[in-house]
Simulated scan of single mutants.
Amino acid sequence: MYFQHASDIWHDFPELVAGVVRAEGITRDAPVDRTIAKYSAIAESRLALATEGELPEIQAWRRAFSRMGHRPTQYRCASESLLRRFRKEKSLPRIHPLIDICNAVSLAFAIPVGVFDVSDISGDLEVRRATGDEKYVTFSGETEHPGTGEVIFVDEAGQAHARRWTNRQSGASAVRDTTGSVLIIAEAMHGSAPEDVRRLTAALADELSALWPVTSKSSAILTPAAPRFAF
């Protein structure tokens, strides 16, 4: 199995930088309060100086959404939505220790982070434009079909695991209490993305090792020259 972005995605968004972390051995019980507080404090300090919409990381994704034909404030990238909620409520709801950690890291870096249960992915996973035949399952269990040309995460079975790129993940491969094997993907397009995505990826890998008895772990930074991550 592998994860990659289609060649036309790299062509149309040459500023894209993607970081990937693969891990096995995740469990439902992990003491994450201190880790969440650490990254939340970073996000709070950044939001004290600027709103989420003023951050370069978010502005870059807004430009990308505009180029995809979406209204940026109608469909927000995942990190913008998290930051927006965090700014208003000063916290995020707890879902699962791994999701909570990834959300906190996403807040601190203002970079979208997606987490996928590998056991629910059929074959290879690719970020590409939809043909219109793919199926997307919502968290409530309803089935949708992404529009033709929409950027999605899709596996070999035609199952879309995210719609509008970093806007909306599917319930099909969401992390659950039984999840043990995960694929974590971070993507950015702002000026310092190469350095920031490397730092984010390294931080996540370190946190996984510190909080779980991870039996297998690997990570990579994807580029047009090295666009594929085998997992």
Rank of each mutant, 00 (worst) to 15 (best):
F13I: 09
V17E: 02
V21T: 01
V21G: 03
I26G: 06
D33Y: 00
Y39T: 13
A41W: 04
L47V: 08
L49N: 03
A50K: 15
E54C: 07
A60H: 00
W61D: 05
R62V: 14
R63H: 05
P72G: 11
Q74N: 11
Y75A: 08
Y75H: 08
R76L: 15
C77W: 05
C77A: 11
S81Q: 11
L83D: 01
R84V: 14
F86T: 04
K90M: 09
L92F: 00
H96N: 07
I99E: 02
N103A: 11
N103L: 13
A104M: 02
A104L: 08
D117N: 11
D117Y: 01
G123E: 13
F139W: 05
F139E: 12
T148Q: 06
V151Q: 01
V151Y: 01
V154T: 01
E156W: 14
E156Q: 14
Q159H: 03
S173N: 09
S173D: 14
A174G: 07
I185Y: 06
P194V: 03
R199I: 11
A203T: 12
A205N: 00
V214L: 12
S218V: 10
S219W: 08
L222A: 03
T223W: 15
A225L: 15
P227N: 12
F229Y: 09
F229S: 02
F229N: 00
F229K: 01
F231T: 04
